[in-house]
C-alpha cells in the first residue's frame, strides 16, 4: 500500500518535471518545425477516416432516437436544434478528441515507447539531442493543432449524417429542419467546442509523450504504454468534459 502510493507520488512528480521540461522546450529553441509538420501531416492522414467514421454515426443516432422522442410531443421541428447544439458543443469535440487519443495518442506513445525499449532515446541523449524536444514536443504541437481541425470536419459530417437520418429516413420536414438548425447555435458554442478540442489535444500529446518515455519492459511495455495512454486520456476527456459543461451551464452560456 505504502509503496503503491509512493509510486503514484513519484509518477506525479515525474509528470510535473516532464511538464516543465516540455514548457521549457516550447519557449526556447531550437524547434524542429519540419518534424512537427511531418507529424501533423501524418496525424491528419491517419485520423481523418477513423474520426469521421466515429462521429458520423452519432449524428445519425441522435436523429434516429430524437425523432421518435420529439414526435411524441409533436415537436419534430426542434430535432435539428437538439442535433446542432449536441454536435457543435458536445459530441463533436469529445468524440473527435477520443478518436485522436485512440489513433494519434496510442501511435505516438507506441512510437516513443519503441524508441525507448530499443535504446534509441538513450542514443539521442548521448548524441546530446534532447529527446523531449525532438520526439515529444512535435507530437504535442501536432495534436493541439490537428484536433480542432478534425473537429470542424466532424461537426459538418455529424450534421450531414443527422440530416440524412432525420429527413429521408425518419421523414422530418426538410424546410423546418434547416430553419431550426442554427436557431440555437451561437458563436459561443463554436468557440467552446474548439477550445475543448485544443485542451483535449494537449492532454493527448502530453500523456502520450509522458507514458511513451516511461516505457519499460520490452515489447509488452510498448503495448502497455499505448493502452494506458488511451484509457487515461479518455478518462481525462470525459471527466473534464463534465466539469466544463457544468461550469458553462452555471455561467449560463
Amino acid at each position: 500500500m505504502l509503496s503503491r502510493s509512493f509510486r503514484w507520488f513519484e509518477a506525479c512528480a515525474a509528470f510535473v518535471e516532464f511538464f516543465c521540461a516540455v514548457c521549457r522546450c516550447l519557449v526556447t529553441g531550437p524547434r524542429y518545425l519540419r518534424e512537427t509538420l511531418r507529424v501533423m501531416d501524418l496525424l491528419i492522414r491517419r485520423c481523418l477516416i477513423p474520426v469521421g467514421l466515429a462521429v458520423a454515426p452519432v449524428g445519425a443516432v441522435i436523429s434516429l432516437q430524437g425523432a421518435g422522442l420529439f414526435r411524441m410531443f409533436g415537436a419534430e421541428s426542434l430535432l435539428s436544434s437538439l442535433l446542432a447544439t449536441a454536435i457543435f458543443r458536445e459530441y463533436s469535440p469529445a468524440l473527435a478528441s477520443v478518436m485522436v487519443a485512440a489513433q494519434a495518442g496510442s501511435s505516438i506513445a507506441a512510437r516513443i515507447g519503441t524508441m525507448k525499449v530499443r535504446g534509441q532515446i538513450d542514443a539521442l541523449a548521448v548524441m546530446s539531442v534532447d529527446p523531449i524536444r525532438y520526439v515529444v514536443v512535435p507530437g504535442l504541437v501536432a495534436c493541439v493543432i490537428v484536433t480542432p481541425l478534425l473537429s470542424v470536419l466532424t461537426t459538418l459530417l455529424g450534421l450531414v449524417s443527422g440530416w440524412f437520418f432525420a429527413v429521408p429516413v425518419m421523414g422530418v420536414d426538410h424546410g423546418s429542419f434547416l430553419a431550426n438548425l442554427y436557431a440555437q447555435v451561437s458563436l459561443v458554442d463554436l468557440w467552446v467546442g474548439l477550445g475543448k478540442c485544443m485542451a483535449f489535444g494537449t492532454a493527448v500529446g502530453l500523456i502520450a509523450g509522458f507514458l511513451g518515455l516511461r516505457t519499460s519492459g520490452g515489447a509488452t511495455g510498448v503495448g502497455k504504454a499505448a493502452n494506458d495512454t488511451v484509457t487515461m486520456t479518455i478518462v481525462l476527456i470525459l471527466v473534464a468534459d463534465y466539469f466544463v459543461s457544468m461550469v458553462l451551464l452555471r455561467l449560463g452560456v
Binding site: 454515426p57 443516432v61 434516429l64 477520443v98 510498448v222
Partner: peptide, 25 residues
C-alpha cells in the same frame, strides 16, 4: 519487433472503436 506490438495495439483500439460505433448505427 517491439514496433509490431505498438502497431497492433493501435490498430486494435482504433478499428474496434470505429467498427462498434458504426455497427451501433
Amino acid at each position: 519487433g517491439a514496433e509490431g506490438v505498438g502497431v497492433a495495439t493501435n490498430r486494435a483500439i482504433v478499428h474496434s472503436a470505429v467498427l462498434c460505433i458504426v455497427l451501433n448505427m
